[in-house]
Design a protein around this nucleic acid. Sequence first.
DNA 1: CTGAAAGCGCTAACAC
DNA 2: GTGTTAGCGCTTTCAG
Lengths: 342, 342
Amino acid sequence: MAKRKAFRIRDIARESGASLTTVSLVLNQRDERISESTRQRVLAAAQRLGYQPSRLAQGLQSQKTGILAVLVPELQHVFADVYFGELLSAIHDHASAVNYKVLLEVAHPDFVSQAKHIELFDRDYVDGVLCIGVTNKDDYLVDFEDRSRPAIIVNNHLPARKLNFVRCDYEEAGRLAAQYLLGLGHRRFGLIHGAPEVQTSLDWRAGVLMALAAAGIGPTPDHLADGLYTEEGGFDAAIELLRRDPAITAILTGNDKMAIGALRGIKKSGRGVPLDVSVVGCDGIHLSAFTDPALTTVHTPLYDIGREACRLLLDLVDNRIDRAEVVRPVSLTVRESAAPAT
Amino acid sequence: MAKRKAFRIRDIARESGASLTTVSLVLNQRDERISESTRQRVLAAAQRLGYQPSRLAQGLQSQKTGILAVLVPELQHVFADVYFGELLSAIHDHASAVNYKVLLEVAHPDFVSQAKHIELFDRDYVDGVLCIGVTNKDDYLVDFEDRSRPAIIVNNHLPARKLNFVRCDYEEAGRLAAQYLLGLGHRRFGLIHGAPEVQTSLDWRAGVLMALAAAGIGPTPDHLADGLYTEEGGFDAAIELLRRDPAITAILTGNDKMAIGALRGIKKSGRGVPLDVSVVGCDGIHLSAFTDPALTTVHTPLYDIGREACRLLLDLVDNRIDRAEVVRPVSLTVRESAAPAT
DNA sequence: CTGAAAGCGCTAACAC
DNA sequence: GTGTTAGCGCTTTCAG
């Protein structure tokens, strides 16, 4: 059983009786000068042998790899999280549509010390990096600022850093959720926010508080709880908030996973949703349509964000642009989990 | 703002006053012959400039890329599925522990026609491929059989093909589940299996049927339903099975997602779990411990499978072995969803 | 103990 | 119209 080895350009040259240059020119469409007959001979040989040029050699020559990296944080089951999964799907779909491959990289804690992130560029692994799930504590991002290759932050931003980003408007998301509940007559709110080292988490919280303040409502610290962006966290936070202030009639959460947990937490606390307590989530993940009651939430266009980030990163790679700072709008999806205050 | 470019070996040579060869020898530990003083000078220079060798150039030389591909099927939200996520985490963890990177590839339908899978090898993208979620219909896998670079099937196998694999024993999984329920006194069973083009799905089904046959029980086709490996499918299948034969007292499912759907479907059909109907799932995903009632299931060591597959693929890459066919045992996890027949 | 030079597979400037 | 050659960054044989 002979192991088949890939054919190289010289095999095509031999097979078609042309020189290396000629083959290269033909295959790269730089063949104005080549006679039609040689062109056909070369093409036929390449076709017959199923020739595909080595990316390693092409890359060494062009200083381009045709690969993009996606940098994800080290979390339990990152790769099984719908949030990251949705972004990853979007990124991969766009990348492969334009013939790029996607390389995975997990941001380990010892990442910085070992310069593993820089390795992606310095060792010629990839042409650009998409950073997802970043936090304000991820100091290593500085190292991406002045590199010869671009990086972009996906669905977040770091106020202190001059880094490219594509994200949606989480402040607006918070505002929309709060205004909707205010419109339904609610006056006493509980907020379940995500990890405070995540900038969009702060944005969302600020949006909610601004809208409430505009209506003359200023929740006390008692009305805030960290739901850790998880179902369990949302569950615990809902129970705790209702314990601290049993008069709460509406709960806002910074993502849908926490909202799903909160739904259960509220029931566990002996209240009905939305009869006693209304809930508004954030993100509009697939599952949010199938909860009981179906979740009213602010839809953040994650798939679009992912695709746009990938598109812009490639624009940066090819120097079509030299800066990317995009904020996309969000919208309210009204379902069943929020009702007029009684 | 000057864009920093990566340093090259010649920068280190210049900086340390040594030749390219010397630098290379020192950095590759082939430095028995190099004097301690030059060694130190080179190391210091490399350290100071943060030098890391280009993988492109090294790869061209060594014909190794230091990258492995993970080939996943094109499914809705593949990257957000716990099954794939768990395998992907395991693979990535092991790969990065031994300094390999992971490249993603989705098996599009037009994959074969465009020879995109072969491209991974022929264009020098990767040193090996891990195939997850394969089915008996994936004809393109033939092309991996006689390549100069190895592929391995993760947690599945194709009887018709001579391909490397690491999987767990799904026949045993089916048998364990059935025997447990038989031991609890059940005599009327419903089976919810996954997609029949997936070999392990057939294995599981065969295991269940064998155990039942040994007890003198031969379910009719009426007692089988395809749950499509999804929650929704499991939900629908459970309802349908109970409609066809209301006397069923136990339902076995080919994975936990379908079991979770079945739990809801059974309740929807007006029965209690495990009082009226017992349920035994398969896989032992994280979530299975948190359902209500907690799921009794057959634990398949997915993380171990993923890591083992990655380890063996690298053994194949480095010619330490030339064949891999591994079957790992499974075990029953008893929780609350199955009870004695009444 | 150290360096010059060939070669991995490809592209492109330059000859012919 | 087509071919020769240098060079991308690195490893490794072979001289010195």
